[in-house]
Design a protein around this nucleic acid. Structure first.
Lengths: 106, 106
DNA sequence: ACGGTATTTCCAGAATTATGGAAATAATGT
DNA sequence: ACATTATTTCCATAATTCTGGAAATACCGT
């Protein structure tokens, strides 16, 4: 994952409301969760929720599928895994014990 | 890690400039990097860099230590690990599709 | 077509963030 | 004390984000 892609995804998750939305979707698992149910469970104005969901969808962290009048939202686990992998790679450039190549392990 | 703590750290990393700053510090390893060196390598106004560093320090992702007139900055690996653990935990609450790459079921 | 439910878009205001020049502070050496 | 280097704080401005009411759109059953 490119650094700017990572940044936009981190930014999307970096809002408390959006992080709660995302967490709800993760917890909902495979079957996902309808927008309306999210709205009830998180107690947000519909338009506010819609804006936040859009932000998550745009960066690929959430996918949506229409089922009649309701819109099912699902967490994109693979995208999250890519993000975590990016962070781990950044965090552990020097992997075990975090020692840079030139500064041997102490 | 509490969800709001995770959110503020994600937000801190969710700015492209700050993510690049953080990455530079991670790559600098445990010896860290002086503010001035960061400034030269990232080509930022001093005040801008100082603001971003402060944001990273406040959320605990970066630590600073004075050495004479220069200020050494270091990535806080443990904090990042806590953040990654949070994300993995959120991601794998239900289904384990976001587990470590090699463990993913097809 | 109509009525109802679900969701988004439009619009606007308030709040926050990003940026950087200029002045201030910090630390050191002479 | 003074000069020098390193960094921050003060200040302002432009840009972006967050929020939600109201209107619009989407979909379905009858």
């Amino acid at each position: 994952m490119m650094i700017d892609d990572a940044a936009v995804r981190l930014e999307a998750l970096g809002n408390p409301t959006r992080l709660k939305i995302y967490r709800s979707l993760v917890r909902a698992g495979h079957s996902g969760m309808a927008v309306g149910k999210l709205q009830a469970s998180l107690d947000l104005a519909g338009s506010t929720l819609s804006h936040h969901l859009k932000a998550l969808v745009i960066v690929g962290l959430v996918a949506q599928e229409r089922q009649g009048t309701t819109l099912i939202c699902r967490a994109n686990y693979e995208m999250m895994r890519g993000l975590v992998d990016f962070l781990v790679a950044e965090c552990c450039v020097d992997a075990c014990e975090c020692a840079p190549a030139e500064a041997a392990r102490s």
